[in-house]
Structures are given as C-alpha cells and as structure tokens.
Design a protein around this nucleic acid. Structure first.
Length: 572
DNA sequence: AGTGTATGAAGCC
DNA sequence: TGGCTTCCCTACAC
C-alpha cells in the first residue's frame, strides 16, 4: 500500500511578532511545526485573522499554549492563511501591552493589580502615596485621658521608666559578623540571651535550634534533635537562663539545657499520634510569665495551654481563645501588668486577656484587623502600647491599652506581604528605646541599589510613621523577615533565609577591611558542593560548619545607595 | 537559564 | 463547611 499523502495542505501560517518582542525569526515562516515551537517559547497572545478580516483574540498562558495552539490550528485546517501574532503578555494579569517583573534589579508592577504596597487600586508601588508621604498615620494618635483607677496605678508604677525627651536613635546599620547557611532551612525565630550579651538563639523550619556566640563567631552549635519540624517561638527560662523553652509545629513544648543540649518534651498536644492533617495540633505562640510561674503556648486550633514552670504540670485545660480552628501565632505577657496577656492569630484579631479570669470569650478587648495578625507585642518598658503586624501590609499601634481600643491610634503602611515560602514578618520593639517609639521590621519589596535588588530592614518611628532608617548590605540579597534588637547593646540580629547576621552601628565598628576573616563563617552541609553567593565555588567539606578559608571570604563592599526606597519630603 | 518544589491563606463554589 | 484553585518581588537545588 502506498503511503497516504496529505490531501489537504497545511494552512499557511503567518507569524507576526510584537514590535517590542525580543528576537524575530522569519516573519512569513509557513512551517506549522516551527510555529508551534515558537509558540511554546514565551507567553503570547494568539490573534487569528480569519478570512473575513474579523479578529479572534485568544489569550493563552504558557502551559496551555501548545494544546490551545494545536486546537486552533486544526480548526483552521484548510482555511485561508492563519496569522498568529506573537505578543508578549503580562505574567501577572495575562494581558498584553505591558509587562510586570524584574527589569534588571528594579521590579515593575502590573498596573492592572492593586498597589503592592498599600493594596489600593489605581496606582502602583512606584507612585504609591505612602511611598512619598512623610508619615503614614491614617488616624492621628489621640491621647486618651481615661483617669480610671487602673490607669492611675499603672502610671504610678511606670512613671520612673518613661523618658520625657526622645533621644537620638542609634541604628545598627553595618553587618559586623554573620553565619552563612548556618541553618539547613530558613530561620523562623531569634532570641538574645537575657544575661550573656553575645549569645543568640535561632530556630528554624526544620526544628533545629542554633546557639551562636557572635563575638567569637566560630563558637556555634546546632541542636537537631529537639524538634522534628518548625520552631515557632523560643523563650529563656526566667529561673535559669541556661535553659530554654521552645514551641514547635511538631506539637511539643521542649525544655533544653543549652550547655549539654539535653532536652525534654514538657508537653505533647498530640498524645494519640498522627491521625491525619485535620487533627494534628501544632504549637505556635508562646511566652513565659515569670510572675505567675507559667509557660503559655497556643495551637493551630485556637487553644491556649499553660504549664507550671516548677512542676511542669499543666495548670488548666486547653482554653479556646481565638476562633475555633484558627492558628494562634502570638502570645505576649505584659511586662508591667503580669495579669495582662495579649494573643493574636489567623482569625484576624489580637485579643487582650486578664489572666485571673481566663475563660473562652472573656477577652477584655478584641483588636480587629483586616487580615491575619502575624504578631502583637506590648511595648517593652511600660507595656502601655501595642504594636501589631498584619498581613494587610500595615503596622498598627494602640497608644494606650486603657484608652478606646475600638480602632488603632495609628496605622502605618509598610511592605511586609505574606508569602508562603517566607517566615512571617513581625515588627519588633526596640527594648532599649525609653520612649517606646522605635520598631524594626524587614521589608518585602526590593529596591535597586546600584544594580542589585536588595530588601532592606526598616526602622520606623511608630509615633509618626516615619522611616528612621533602612539598613541593607550588598551581600544580603534575600528577604530578612526575622529581626531582633538586642535588649542592652546597640545590636541587631537578622535571620535571612538560612543565614544569620549581626549588625552594629557603623561609627562604632572597626573598618571591615581590617577585620579577622573569621568574622564571617560559611556553613555548609557536608559533602555538598555549593555556589557561594559571595565569591566563587566552595568545596570545603571538612567540617559540618567549617570556616570560610582566607580568600574565599565574603567581601563586604561599601554600599552606595542610589535612591531612597521611601523618599520622604523632609529629612529622616 | 530554566525548572521543580517546599509551602499558606484567601476566595470561590 | 470542605475541597479546590490561585497567587505579585522566594530560595535554592539540580
């Protein structure tokens, strides 16, 4: 039998490319296969010019491209020439005429979407009014004078701690030491030692807990057998600062001796083991109340638990404090009033509780938010203010916890978007600021700094919304959602991806060029070759957490910020 | 350089 | 309520 030949010739295909598309092949290529091939290369828009001149527009994403293309071609088999115009579409909204994404180190927003910073429609991040305003307060901070008894006693108690004059802020703006790839998964929480100034604790997504002496730099330890997955919060034991508590999504509260690494599980909220994801309890928020001698922690079903710190027995049954089935991600005890507890979670609320009468639904105040509340903290000295970080890209401040709590006294628009691959951002108070007005938080959106997209860490004056400082380092190209200011020293600790960084004020640091190489330690998983971000390939697998050898050390170049990400009207 | 994948909240039906 | 899909700047390994 003679081979069958194609009776109907394949339709003539004319490919027209968008004028600003990259390379252009022969415009009048009539090879069908070639057309399909080209179509799969990039996101394009089909335009099918039919015989009567009527135009059929079909928008196709890159995945459905081939299939749709074939359908289209087969439909048109035998028809007059098929014109396929290759036109670039925006990867965000799939519409032609514009493109979103990185242009070099600058990110261009899709104009069809709401502003990535303030979430309002009609403009992009570049032109967002919150980028150019000198302050962001949507509601002025009112000084509420409630003059109730509680307020009176409260003020008497804290008055000596309140500074009348705001001192100049000291900003730790230069990286002085770092451990690169210290953790094997991203860092989730940080904690400074309450008495030893140079000890930093870090928890990660894998369940490991690191203990790092950042003055000696190379003195570091990672405990990998304490938890089996994400460490959500850690606290030092107020009765013995050589021991810590940690809450993990493995459903346990651990108690660990930092010297020996010996750890015990104080409580397991999944006593029956794994019964499927719908019943598995994970622990998120945690705090210790030294006055009451209890460890408080909460799970992903809305429940609060309490353990007596001396007996390690639970002091009460689990108590529903947030919407049933929602995560309670943060707990904080008031530093001055031990009866007051602050919680926050995925039900879009932060709640204030009186620990003397804790029962479901008995919260003193419910502070509403538009999205999940990542964190809620009382101010560190007076405990009178509350700072929350919400996934709606806003920081909120309640100036007086005894005032009108129906609405925050201030909202500050700030880029700290939720991203499932990042540890949630949490704005943290500066515990050293006597005026309780300085907060630190990492920034999600990047800025083009001399050709590199960097994500700075912002210092914000929460009394007026002003950006006091933004710190960045050319070597930290990853987002830094985890930040903690030292309780006594002018030191900032940053967790960015798997690495840790310690910042100090520039004027107090010795020039980096003269520094000991070992100020920066590169860690790696044994046997793995990996590309260093900072200077070539490393195959040093002599040590689990080996030092960077001389010459391979990270080069910290002096940064030259070309532009200010949040240009202000005045000086900041 | 290109791709797969870890993964969480929101919104829809 | 539950199951499904979508999602805008990730980080990193291969």
């Amino acid at each position: 039998m003679a081979p069958q030949t194609r009776r109907m010739p394949f339709p003539k295909v004319v490919i027209e490319r968008d004028s600003d598309s990259n390379q252009s092949t022969s415009d009048d290529d009539d090879d069908g296969e070639e057309a399909e091939c080209s179509l799969s290369e990039s996101e394009t828009e089909f335009e099918d010019a039919a015989e009567n001149g009527k135009t059929d527009e079909v928008e196709i994403g890159n995945m459905g491209m081939m299939k749709k293309g074939k359908e289209l071609l087969s439909k048109k088999k035998g028809d007059v020439p098929l014109t396929i115009r290759l036109q670039k579409v925006c990867k965000v909204c799939k519409k032609p005429g514009h493109e979103a994404g990185f242009k070099g180190a600058t990110y261009v927003d899709c104009p069809m979407k709401p502003c990535f910073l303030c979430k309002m429609p009609g403009h992009t991040t570049m032109t967002c009014p919150h980028r150019v305003a000198s302050e962001h307060g949507v509601i002025p901070a009112p000084m509420k004078n409630t003059q109730n008894y509680l307020e009176y006693f409260f003020l008497r108690q804290i008055r000596p701690n309140i500074h009348p004059i705001k001192p100049a802020y000291v900003i730790p703006d230069q990286v002085c030491c770092a451990v690169i790839r210290y953790h094997s998964r991203r860092v989730t929480c940080l904690e400074f030692h309450p008495t030893k100034n140079n000890i930093l604790l870090s928890g990660d997504k894998k369940g490991q807990i690191g203990v790092w002496d950042f003055d000696k730099v190379h003195e570091k330890m990672v405990y990998g057998n304490i938890h089996s997955c994400i460490v959500n919060n850690m606290r030092f034991n107020p009765l013995n600062d050589g021991t810590i508590y940690a809450a993990s999504a493995d459903g346990t509260i651990s108690f660990t001796d930092l010297e020996t690494g010996i750890s015990s599980s104080l409580m397991n909220v999944n006593p029956d083991g794994w019964q499927g994801p719908s019943t598995w309890r994970m622990l998120y928020g945690m705090d210790v109340n030294s006055e009451k001698g209890v460890v408080l922690f909460a799970d992903n079903f809305g429940f609060l638990y309490m353990l007596d710190m001396r007996s390690n027995n639970k002091t009460s049954e689990a108590l529903l404090i947030h919407k049933r089935g929602s995560k309670v991600v943060g707990l904080h005890c008031n530093p001055v009033q031990p009866q007051l507890l602050l919680s926050c979670g995925n039900d879009h609320f932060a709640r204030i509780w009186d620990m003397r009468k804790l029962e479901a639904g008995s919260s003193l105040y419910d502070l509403p938010h538009k999205r999940v509340v990542n964190s809620a903290y009382f101010s560190p000295l007076s405990g009178r203010k509350i700072l929350t970080t919400c996934q709606d890209n806003r920081l909120r401040i309640w100036d007086s916890i005894f005032g009108n709590l129906e609405s925050p006294s201030r909202e500050i628009v700030h880029s700290h978007d939720f991203n499932r691959h990042l540890t949630p951002f949490r704005a943290e108070w500066d515990p050293k600021d006597p005026t309780e007005s300085l907060a630190v938080i990492g920034r999600y959106i990047s800025e083009n700094y001399n050709g590199t997209a960097l994500h700075p860490i912002d210092f914000i004056d929460i009394t007026n919304g002003q950006l006091v400082a933004e710190v960045m380092d050319p070597n930290i190209t990853t987002i830094s959602p985890v930040n903690k200011l030292h309780p006594r020293d002018d030191v900032l600790a940053t967790g960015s991806s798997r690495s840790l960084f310690i910042w100090r004020p520039k004027e107090r640091s010795e020039p980096l060029e003269q520094k000991d190489d070992r100020k920066i330690v590169i860690c790696q998983i044994p046997g793995k070759k990996y590309k260093q971000k900072f200077g070539g390939e490393s195959d040093d697998d002599s040590d689990d957490y080996g030092f960077a050898s001389k010459g391979k050390n990270i080069k910290l170049e002096k940064r030259k910020a070309k532009s200010t990400p949040y240009p202000r009207k005045g000086k900041h």
